[in-house]
Design a binder for these strands. Structure first.
Lengths: 167, 167
DNA sequence: CTGATAGTTGAAGTCAACTTCATGTCAAGT
DNA sequence: ACTTGACATGAAGTTGACTTCAACTATCAG
């Protein structure tokens, strides 16, 4: 029994599973919209909870907050989003997950053929290969998608290897 | 035709695909060992290239540099590691990748059952569920392994939800 | 011997996504 | 009215894995 059906930061946080600070952070980024009381405190509509569920789901799938913001910006202004709206936004996710699974599977299979030899060749080993070597017909050249790769800064240094680093 | 078969930072970097700065960083962390010239410059043995291949492979599989350091510390001191040594170190990786693949697959399958409804229920939706809700028999409760999860700070806030946030 | 090229250091910066802190204000129950 | 707990803000801190910078110094081909 509240005076209205608007929710405070604390209530939103408790019911969504996000920390208070994360809620304020998202508000600051514009991912959430809040009205303010006369005293300046945030008050959220209940639909904010669904928005937060979307945010968590998107992040689990691997989207950055920037991508989430872009997606949310495409929601129709003025009315509360419908199920169809949310569904539309998450359409691409399956494909994204498929890609991630495929990349990991290829990596694992490459590992299977590598693990017995211990070679870890910089040219041939699927599991240690950076993102652009071994392009030509290596049997299991496996690359992680950018989001999963631990190899983020590969834009400046093109790796072309012409010699075998034999130990 | 070099004066010896020792490699400079630049050569190591070029041939391994890592940046110079990363090589020095790894050296500082103790992941690599280098001798020094009279003038103080690093000189690496060729086996360092294999070590770096291992590091990249490990990072692709999802290990942190701390884990890499621990693994490398278990290599026998005094002699150049053999293939068997490298193989031993990467034994657990297949299992690790299997776990990651399984988690992503479960997430995708949860998505399949969610995507039509647009519900994104904080209780029921496998894809938006944080790490401890929906434990009891939800059909596709999917959780990402810690390394893939975008939800790192789950230690302090246990999420127990008892009400449906209907928008 | 002399440049050019490549190497050295420590400190500080970057990025993402938040959290923590200090200090101060609001709201609500009694 | 008062007290308590929640909320407000801006700035700074956190983590991991590096990168960038400034100011020097080493190496080597010619």
């Amino acid at each position: 029994m509240h005076s209205s059906d608007l929710l405070t930061v604390g209530e939103i946080a408790r019911r969504s599973g996000f920390a208070d600070s994360a809620i304020r952070y998202y508000d600051r980024l514009g991912l959430l919209t809040a009205t303010r009381t006369a005293g300046g405190q945030r008050r959220f509509e209940r639909s904010t909870l669904r928005r937060l569920a979307f945010i968590r789901a998107a992040r689990n799938v691997g989207l950055s907050l920037d991508e989430v913001a872009a997606a949310l910006a495409s929601l129709p202004a003025g009315r509360t989003p419908t199920r169809a709206d949310w569904t539309r936004l998450s359409r691409g996710w399956r494909h994204r997950l498929d890609d991630q699974i495929e990349a990991l599977t290829a990596l694992r299979d490459g590992l299977d053929s590598c693990i017995g030899c211990g070679c870890l060749s910089l040219q041939r080993c699927a599991i240690s290969n950076p993102a652009d070597a071994a392009r030509a017909g290596g049997p299991g050249a496996a690359y992680l998608p950018a989001g999963l790769r631990r190899d983020h800064g590969d834009s400046r240094g093109t790796v072309r290897m012409t010699q075998d680093p034999s130990s």
